[in-house]
Design a binder for these strands. Structure first.
Length: 113
DNA sequence: ACAATGACTGAAT
DNA sequence: AATTCAGCCATTG
């Protein structure tokens, strides 16, 4: 059974557009807890039971590294999915990370003019 | 209830 | 500039 916190994380992750990536810290910050980045990752670990599915492959650490690729069905799944969406990945690191970075604090909330 | 863990991050050395 | 250390906080043993 997932806590409300987890579901909230999943909700944000599902909002990540195809071809974009976000970071645990950015999501955590959007939830109001900038220090809960680890909890976001923890929520991702439990996202396998989420419904609908959560594009956890679009979530990487602040360096753009596929830190959680090992938690997928099999290593390489994460990179394959990202490349399938047009994101170049090399050495487990997202290329042009800042270019693909999607920050919920900027894209969702905020009165971005 | 206490201690340990973790798909992270920022500060310190 | 690169590596190491400590903080963070929900989940799990």
């Amino acid at each position: 059974m997932a806590s409300e916190f987890f579901e909230r994380v999943w909700e944000v992750v599902r909002l990540i557009p195809k071809g974009r990536v976000s970071s645990y810290g950015a999501i955590g910050r959007y939830l109001g807890s900038p220090k809960s980045a680890r909890l976001v990752g923890y929520a991702m670990n439990a996202s396998h039971q989420a419904s609908p599915i959560v594009p956890a492959h679009r979530v990487v650490n602040r360096k753009g590294m596929l830190s959680g690729k090992h938690h997928f069905a099999f290593p390489g799944q994460m990179q394959a999915l990202l490349e399938s969406e047009g994101i170049q990945v090399n050495e487990d690191v997202v290329q042009n990370f800042e270019q693909h970075f999607w920050d919920p604090n900027i894209e969702l909330d905020l009165n971005h003019e």
